[in-house]
């Protein structure tokens, strides 16, 4: 057991400052345990979100020593010596202390055109194991929104929130675009309105993902390549013409109804 200084951001939309709390760190504790002890002893009004304490709900995402991490999965004994800095996620507006308003993400979720399967065949839909496995990785997402938080496209450029869905939703788009039963074509939508071109693949989303989803390699870059197929590749364009395949415009894709 040793004493540790927790430097926690306290404040709301009207402003804030760091406050230091010196607490005793016990063996095996995670940052969230120490935050709870501060609530129980020094600052009962300290606001933070938490739920499962098992790294599966994504509620307790914050920035620990400047990096987005889940407080419940960050062991105190793995942090370097010295004060531990804890701040709310920078990309989203603050509500209070460590709690932010992440509704930007819910707005982006609403914009995702749903899966649009073909009419049901007489013997029903069939999915093969290799196609099921492909999207499995993307469904591990716990929506902690740390990938959105660390993405510099919106972290450092607030205006881009109007044009950019963010890594969490590129995973969703990738999952749908790789779904064998989906007939929607979202490629123009992803390029024109979801801002895939803003991503410069610096892989920070992959670095912070607590579920270790290869966001950049398995979702964003495959989406970029699909956009190249649809928009920038004359050979692919010729192939579509010969096979008389058409793609949906961004507008058409955006209004596809859920089945």
């Amino acid at each position: 057991m040793s004493d540790v200084t927790m430097r926690v951001w306290r404040g709301d939309a009207n402003g804030g400052q760091f406050e230091d709390y010196t607490v005793t760190q016990q063996e095996g504790e995670v940052v969230l345990d120490v935050i709870h002890r501060i609530q129980a002893t020094d600052a009962p009004d300290l606001a933070c979100r938490w739920n499962c304490k098992a790294g599966k709900c994504g509620s307790c995402a914050a920035e620990i020593n400047g990096k987005p991490r889940l407080m419940c999965m960050t062991r105190m004994d793995q942090l370097p010596e010295g004060p531990v800095t804890i701040t709310p996620m920078k990309t989203f507006p603050i509500i209070r202390d460590l709690v932010t308003d992440v509704s930007f993400n819910y707005a982006q979720a609403e914009k995702v055109p749903a899966l649009l399967p073909p009419p049901m065949p007489a013997d029903g839909y069939r999915m093969f194991q290799q196609d099921v496995e492909r999207g499995q990785e993307f469904r591990k997402c716990i929506e902690c929104f740390m990938c959105q938080d660390v993405c510099h496209v919106i972290r450092d450029h607030e205006d881009n929130k109007q044009y950019y869905a963010g890594p969490r939703f590129f995973i969703r788009y990738a999952e749908l675009e790789m779904h064998p039963l989906d007939t929607n074509d979202r490629r123009d939508l992803i390029r024109e309105e979801m801002g895939l071109g803003y991503c410069n693949i610096t892989k920070c989303c992959t670095e912070v993902c607590p579920e270790h989803i290869k966001i950049t390699d398995n979702a964003i870059i495959p989406l970029k390549e699909r956009v190249v197929d649809a928009q920038y590749d004359p050979v692919a364009w010729l192939g579509r013409k010969i096979r008389r395949k058409t793609k949906r415009s961004a507008e058409e894709a955006a209004v596809q109804p859920a089945p």
Binding site: T85, A107, E110, K111, D159
Partner: peptide, 26 residues
Amino acid sequence: TAVGSSTKVVLGGTRGGPDVATLRQD
């Protein structure tokens, strides 16, 4: 500016944390 969707989102809200380039210590 409001993002176009039924969920009300306000851009330009006050962010938490200090206004510094990074708090990373590594």
